[in-house]
Design a protein around this nucleic acid. Structure first.
Length: 167
DNA sequence: ATCGTCATATGAA
DNA sequence: TTCATATGACGAT
């Protein structure tokens, strides 16, 4: 079931303006800076918890862009995903910064060693890149694979964290 | 080293 | 049920 969004807030960084989308349960999605940033009307009467979440999200995003591990994450609303996808996303959260996994390893970790391609699919469906580090997942041979926000971002993030994909 | 092919899980249409 | 995958393994160049 798809979460109902309460608010979309900006995150200003030196890499551009990200957008964070919140539901009643937490952070439900993040957008990479658009090439042509869209302007949003000012949000009024933001619920207190959303403001708290956003403060945490902002710090977490900036930490990641700086190659550091976030001290704290906001509650993540992954209710939009299937059970399998949520399982994959949760697994991705365990990957420490600076390390990478292959799609096959993730599949093995969730006790479905054959579901390698499905893992790729779940990564692509990840609504919260950066915080759910789908960019730390490479193909088995070290190839970069793909990235929903654009391959450039994936390479950049990996380089920032000290990983060196093959291509 | 590169390329084609196939097996297999999951999800969307 | 059919089609597409951000894979992986294998065999033939």
């Amino acid at each position: 079931m798809k979460p109902t969004l309460l608010a979309s807030l900006s995150i200003e960084t030196n890499a551009g303006t990200f957008r964070a989308h919140y539901s009643e349960r937490g952070l439900a999605g993040i957008d990479f800076p658009a090439t042509k940033p869209r302007q949003y009307a000012a949000t009024i009467a933001l619920p207190t918890n959303v403001r708290q979440w956003h403060a945490i999200t902002t710090k977490a995003v900036k930490a990641i862009l700086a190659g550091k591990t976030p001290a704290e994450l906001p509650p993540l609303d992954v209710s939009g995903g299937t059970e399998f996808q949520q399982r994959v996303w949760e697994e991705l959260l365990w990957i420490p910064g600076g390390e990478t996994r292959s799609y096959g390893e993730i599949a093995k970790n969730i006790r479905k060693p054959k579901a390698v391609r499905a893992v790729g699919g779940a990564c692509g469906a990840n609504p919260i890149p950066l915080l759910i580090p789908c960019h730390r997942v490479l193909a088995a041979n070290g190839k970069i694979g793909g990235f929903s926000g654009g391959l450039e971002w994936k390479k950049k993030l990996l380089a920032t964290e000290g990983s060196a994909p093959v291509n």
